[in-house]
Design a binder for these strands. Structure first.
Lengths: 125, 125, 125, 125
DNA sequence: GTGGTCTAGACCACA
DNA sequence: GTGGTCTAGACCACA
């Protein structure tokens, strides 16, 4: 269910967060669903339990999951909203990136093509 | 000529690189122009000389400048091309970002609006 | 008669204690009344019997109930007093909370409004 | 500058967060001020660096400080606002606590007295 | 020196 | 079993 790229620059705990967000966005995980336990996932991914813990507590503080001591970690009711709102905040990054590309000499057409590509493949990985 | 945001998450050396690229893209600096000396810039920006050094050698390895030991660091002939090519490589990042936003539930309209905004304000900061 | 919020951060056994206290405070349960048996309540709430046991023995040591082995758990004569005294001890928590809020910049008016609200809706949940 | 109560139930990292908030609320620390480094504070308090790290990264994600890798951790511009807003969210807790006390039989007068006490000693510990 | 990530492993309260 | 906290200590990128 989860896959870690040890070569990647993005921290392991961040990779886990992103994958949970993806599963929720795709509707594969829904509010109330339980995530694998810290220990079981740490074994499955050959990763230290602390790293999973960090991912889960981040998901909790982002409003995507509820970590309930003694019971488990569950997708929260507000998960979809929290993810969408986080996405909205990233629109500013998108704007800056476009501006930077335009400035560096990349043409408007190349940029719009890339955006279209991104929009047209909505659920491929 | 250069400004460093000490609070920013982007490394200081990266901020310097970005600003050199911007100056070239805007045509303010051209092939053959000399960058400030490592020492003078380090003093001007209150930054460790090693950090400037790192920025300049990165600019060198990216084909944007030529560091000539004992003489200085100069904008290279290939600077504009190198910057544009780097920009093209960033199109992939743009594509991924758009895909990620779309997946997280941000609407197509919001995304296209942000792209337009980025394109319409070509040289504001 | 009892409801458990599995998503809540307050431990299940604590939730049970609070609900017993509320029933006594509201006069719904009185001295001598018998609480549901450990087994039956554990089944009703889909909760581990150990958890109910823990709640009941806590109620016992707080002087709110008497656990009689082999017979059951009964609201004690001193229940109302015990609850009121526990409440008085919580006045210190209230004082600290108010102090903390005031210190954090919340205005006196906002605090007094919240207190009034709490006082005016005496028995809504 | 910081003091840890090893006997307390509140986690060490939380104690540190609270103390930073208090220092900001009291105007002792201001936007831009640098917190002690992770290592130095860990030595001063005889606490593991990871624990300080956790406190600082929490302060960061709460908008109270900016952790800048390689430079240090600084009180953010938005610190006071962030603290005040967090306080406002705690008003709901206050309301519930008052309701619970009133229900348990504590008189209105006792409650109001405690609130006044909390308000009248604005900066004692 | 400074923060950030991670492993290894312990201990706690709660279910 | 389940999450939460913490120590001890390593290694990384950046300043």
């Amino acid at each position: 269910m989860f896959r870690i790229d040890g070569m990647s620059r993005t921290p392991v705990y961040e990779q886990i967060i992103e994958q949970v967000e993806k599963l929720v966005s795709l509707g594969i995980m829904k509010a109330g669903d339980q995530l694998p336990s810290v220990r079981s996932l740490s074994i499955e991914l050959s990763v230290n339990p602390n790293t999973i813990q960090k991912a889960y507590s981040e998901l909790d503080s982002r409003g995507i999951a509820n970590s309930v001591p003694g019971k488990g970690c569950f997708i929260s009711e507000s998960a979809e909203d929290a993810i969408k709102n986080a996405g909205r905040k990233k629109l500013a990054i998108l704007r800056e990136l476009v501006k930077e590309l335009a400035l560096s000499g990349v043409t408007k057409e190349e940029i719009e093509k890339a955006v279209e590509d991104g929009l047209s493949i909505p659920a491929e990985n």
